[in-house]
Design a protein around this nucleic acid. Structure first.
Length: 437
RNA sequence: GCCCCGGUGGUCUAGCGGUCUAUGAUCCCGGCCUGUCGAGCCGGGUGCUCGGGUUCGAAUCCCGACCGGGGCGCCA
């Protein structure tokens, strides 16, 4: 099927002499006096349209005046030419400006100067015209596709839980509120409660890739107020390690797919991806404290691992060849009510964080499925069970043992591609100050 | 929320009390050029975030506001 517009990738020197119409954004106009070149950008790269003054002076004059970044359709003859970058050029017979670009551009697209992040996000659609910026989102798409196909192969069901909620997940401090026909509603900060509820139904392996909202006024390169969470929950486990292979497999598969399917994008970003070896290293909390002590950082048993400690551990693991590792056995006291405590040592919980290049990618663990214990822990954490009746109901009539994780997709893409800021991995990021575009 | 740093043409920057009628690049406009591909050459164009203060004199120093970048806390 030959549409009116040909893609650059469908054309080569073999088409020598053929008529074609190509569309794109004019990246540059070079008028050399008697000959002019339009460098036109498409999804996959650029092609050159050539106009000679002596063959069509009117066309030559109009071509020379096209404003950069305008959308044009160029009709002409494909001419083989080894001197040209693609090995061919389009000798133009007609050039239509389908949509002119205004002057000046608020952001340089193909210029030799950069732009600040703020300027770029204010003009994100122009920013995304740059091949390196777009490459991030082609890769992100491969990642989500790989996660889905891997888990589908493990008999997971993809689910979608509500993002408007009448009660918070684990408290209330970090929730955005909104008006719901005169009632107070919240934007979901996590699918945690819902995916657990599903474990009581027979949909015993579920995952969800969806937005989560946090009203934390965080101001860092790894926090945004709206992020994409890759959550999963697995029932019929005996210990949390039983579901680790699913997370490991999904990540390894995603990296492999990116390595094989995004070679051009990785090159545009100047990123080399190493193969991910599974299983990942498991580092126990107490082992981590000892390791930190050896590096001059003293934490008392029960303390949370702060950012400095996290970076130190990351460096230590990296030295041992572990770019990615599980940090297991966090103190029960610093974990939410739904995590299960160790049967032998109740101060230690069946929980973990997944660390990647010094940053937290995921956290999860085995959940408390015993109704009475769950209820007691909820009260212990100062939560009112009445607000969670809808959730507790799922535990009252038979809940299998289960566990799962929440994994930050944006953060993963950031670290995978060594991006300096999580916002780079999000098309239209939302942070403390940015709500537009 | 706290701490550090910063706001100069459309964009990215130099300057950090007078000689700033503000640097350079990119961009835009005009001119030259028939093979450019980071095109080249010549000429021109646009700017000190805002409000107070210090000073003979402020882009430059001080205070405040607003905006931005980074760190911490929190976490995905």
């Amino acid at each position: 099927m030959a549409g009116p517009f040909r893609t650059l990738t469908s054309i080569g020197p073999k088409d020598h002499g053929a008529q074609a119409t190509l569309g794109g954004w004019v990246e540059d106009v070079r008028n050399l006096g008697g000959i002019a070149f339009l460098i036109v950008r498409q999804r996959a790269g650029t092609f050159q349209a050539t106009v000679k003054k002596k063959s069509d002076e009117d066309l030559f004059n109009r071509a020379s005046k096209v404003v950069r970044e305008s959308v044009v359709a160029v009709r002409g003859t494909i001419q083989r030419n080894p001197e040209v970058r693609n090995g061919w050029e389009l000798v133009a017979a007609a050039i239509d400006v389908l949509s002119p670009a205004a002057v000046p551009l608020p952001l340089p697209v193909a210029d030799k100067v950069g732009a600040d992040m703020d300027t770029r996000f204010d003009n994100r659609t122009l920013d995304l015209r740059k091949p390196g910026v777009r490459a991030i989102f082609r890769i992100r798409s491969i990642v989500t596709s790989a996660l889905r196909s891997y888990l589908a192969g493990q008999e997971f069901v993809e689910v979608h839980t509500p993002k408007l909620a009448g009660a918070g997940a684990e408290g209330g401090a970090t929730l955005f509120t909104t008006d719901y026909f005169g009632r107070k509603a919240y934007l979901s900060q996590s699918p945690q409660l819902y995916k657990q509820m599903l474990m009581s139904t027979g949909l015993d392996r579920v995952y969800e890739i969806a937005p989560a909202f946090r009203a934390e006024p965080s101001d860092t390169v790894r926090h945004v107020t709206e992020f994409t969470s890759f959550d999963a929950e697995v029932a019929w486990i005996e210990r949390q390690e039983d579901f680790f292979p699913f997370l490991e497999g999904a990540i390894a598969h995603a990296v492999e797919r990116v390595r094989s399917e995004a070679k051009a994008e990785l090159e545009a970003l100047q990123v080399t991806l190493k193969e991910v070896r599974i299983p990942f290293r498991r580092l126990d909390y107490s082992e981590a404290l000892e390791l930190l002590r050896g590096r001059g950082k003293r934490l008392r048993a029960g303390d949370d691992i702060d950012t400095e400690a996290e970076k130190l551990l990351g460096a230590a693991m990296q030295e041992q060849g572990h770019e990615i590792y599980f940090l297991t056995g966090y103190p029960t006291a610093i974990k939410p009510f739904y995590v299960m405590a160790d049967a032998e040592e109740p101060d230690v919980s069946y929980s973990f964080d997944l660390e990647y290049k010094g940053d937290e990618m995921a956290s999860g663990g085995q959940r408390e499925h015993r109704y009475d214990v769950l209820l007691a822990k909820m009260k212990e954490k100062g939560l009112n069970p009445e607000n969670f009746e809808f959730y507790l109901k799922a535990f009252r009539y038979g809940m299998p043992p289960h566990g799962g994780w929440g994994f930050g997709l944006d953060r993963f893409v950031q670290k995978l591609l060594d991006l300096p800021n999580i916002r780079e991995a999000i098309l239209f990021p939302r942070d403390r100050t940015r709500l537009v575009p």
